[in-house]
Simulated assay, not measured.
Amino acid sequence: MRKEGRGASGFPTEAKLRWMGKMDGITLERLGNLHLVFLHLPIGFVVAAVLLELWRWRRPSVEGAWLQGRLLAANAVASLLTAGAGLLLASGGNYSGEVLALHRWAGVTCAALAIAAWMAHARGGKWAGRVMLFALLVATIVAGHLGATLTHGSAVTVWWRTEKTESKKTTVAVHPIAADAPVFEKEIRPLLERSCFECHGPLKARGRLRLDTREAALAGGKSGLPAITPGKPEASELLRRIKLPRDDDEAMPAGDALELTPAEIARLEKWIVDGASWR
């Protein structure tokens, strides 16, 4: 029987996490952001423990075993802190989708394996400890890969390029578009892909807002306001934020995404006035 407040996956439901956040929003938000700091600790401890294990394989010593035990103990504590902060960060609604679910499970797996590796070493199980340590290393690599994909997009983990780009601002996905394509496919979707999908797409939904589907855009995000209201540009939160000065905290697009030109904003506004057709 499923416990109240928990989803089918065993994690607290989004509603439960939002309720937790309301108890002390500022404190919990800051704790969640610490995930970005804590995550470097278990990575360092795991790498150090693996290197020490390789050294001990050739030169066993009491001192090496003692040091490795301390490293694994510190890693277990750091992994629990990282996983806990990560769950709080995920509850903020800035990320969504399958990658988030996989990263969350990978993080919890890392914490469990960190404790198992520490206990195996403490009990003197040489081979059990090595198996746990190897599994922990693999889980750490997987969790790190998924975390990088979640934060920076899938392109960050591609280790080769067919051509070089000067900066992130000049990197734009190019898709062939037929000359007789509808207005959305020809003019609007390229703008959203270039300036919006990095933060509000299938991999990352900042503020619980997605703009890659019409239904999600009409529903809006964490603010409760629709990003797009067909026929009513004045009631479209997306258009309001795009028109804000760049130094405004609510201005979109945020970060390094390429901002829209006045002509592009006018094109987007006319599209909304005409009914915001997604075809």
Rank of each mutant, 00 (worst) to 15 (best):
A173C: 11
T165R: 12
V183P: 04
V174P: 00
G147Y: 05
V174G: 07
K169G: 07
H152S: 00
P176W: 12
L191G: 01
P182D: 05
A179P: 07
S167H: 05
L150G: 08
A181M: 07
S154V: 03
S167I: 12
E163R: 15
K164H: 15
A148M: 03
V158S: 10
H145F: 10
T162M: 03
I177D: 00
A178W: 13
D180A: 08
H152P: 00
D180P: 10
T151G: 01
T165E: 12
G144D: 04
H145S: 04
F184K: 07
D180N: 14
G153N: 02
R189E: 05
K164W: 15
K186F: 02
V174Y: 12
A178V: 11
V158M: 09
T149Y: 00
L146P: 01
V156F: 06
T162Q: 15
G153Q: 03
K186L: 06
F184P: 01
K186T: 04
A179K: 11
K186Y: 04
V172D: 08
K168A: 14
A181V: 05
T165L: 12
G153E: 06
I188W: 05
G153C: 04
A155G: 05
V183K: 05
A179T: 14
E187R: 02
T151M: 06
P190R: 02
V174E: 14
K169C: 08
T171L: 14
K186M: 03
A155C: 02
T162A: 13
I177W: 05
A155N: 06
V156R: 14
H175D: 09
T165K: 13
V172I: 08
L150K: 07
T171M: 14
D180M: 13
E185V: 05
V183G: 04
T157N: 10
A181P: 02
S154C: 06
G147T: 04
G153M: 00
A155F: 08
L146D: 03
V174Q: 15
E166F: 02
F184H: 11
L192D: 00
I177H: 07
P176F: 08
R161S: 09
I177V: 09
A178D: 11
F184V: 09
W159C: 09
W159N: 06
S167L: 10
V183A: 03
T162W: 13
E163M: 14
A148K: 00
P176H: 12
T149K: 13
V158R: 08
V158H: 13
I177A: 07
K168E: 13
H145C: 00
L150H: 01
L150D: 03
T170K: 15
G147P: 04
A155V: 06
G147Q: 09
K169R: 13
E166M: 04
R189M: 03
V156Q: 02
E163L: 10
F184Q: 06
V172E: 13
S167V: 03
A148N: 00
V156A: 11
E185Y: 09
T162N: 11
G147S: 01
E163H: 11
T162V: 12
L146H: 03
L150E: 00
G144Q: 03
V158I: 07
K169I: 10
E187F: 06
L192G: 00
K169S: 11
D180F: 11
V172P: 09
I188G: 02
L191Y: 00
